[in-house]
Amino acid sequence: MELLIAHGATILFYLFAAVVVAGAVGVVALRNPMYGALCLLATFLGVAALFLLRHAEFVGVVQIFVYGGGVMVLFLFVIMLVNLHRLREVRMLASTAPLAAVVAVLLVGMLLWAVVALPGGGAAAGAAGTAALREVAGEELGNSEAVAWVLFRDHLVAFEVASLFLLVAMIGAVVLGRKR
């Protein structure tokens, strides 16, 4: 029990990291996209929990709403709209799978090498001050308020461009999805 309390964050990290990796493997490895979508949901929720562990409460909740809610419903709807019979007869992977595996392993190796080459070998505890993630002008509020200040004060143009992008994406999806 003492171990659980002393290493609570560590244990939670490994638990959710296992959920994330298992879900990702499920997405890639399962033949039926419906099962894949449910594995993807597990990955989304695991990533949201990892955001909470890094004191990104707002991003974590947005992750659950947008990914776990919106994107997931979109995927499930389309999977059910598209008739996926005769799935077992087709090959699942492209013929270039071994080459793709080599490419993916090489890329992960390079990324891990870069992590090890970080100052401090990437082992820095990263506790430069979690209070700074909740602070607005020296006053400690909440993470959402702090994010809102940075978002609307420093990145307002990017915010407006993002809203324009979402409008364009919405129109594009409607145009693509309508019946001819």
């Binding site: 560590t10 994330v20 595996a101 070998g121 082992a123």
Partner: peptide
């Protein structure tokens, strides 16, 4: 203790799995 490196390693693994899926699944 969990540091930034742990998250970067997990991110790299997740990226590798996703890349493999993009390149191979039909």
């Amino acid at each position: 203790p969990i540091g930034t490196g742990h998250f970067l390693v997990l991110g790299a693994i997740l990226f590798g799995i996703g890349l493999f899926g993009i390149l191979t699944r039909r």
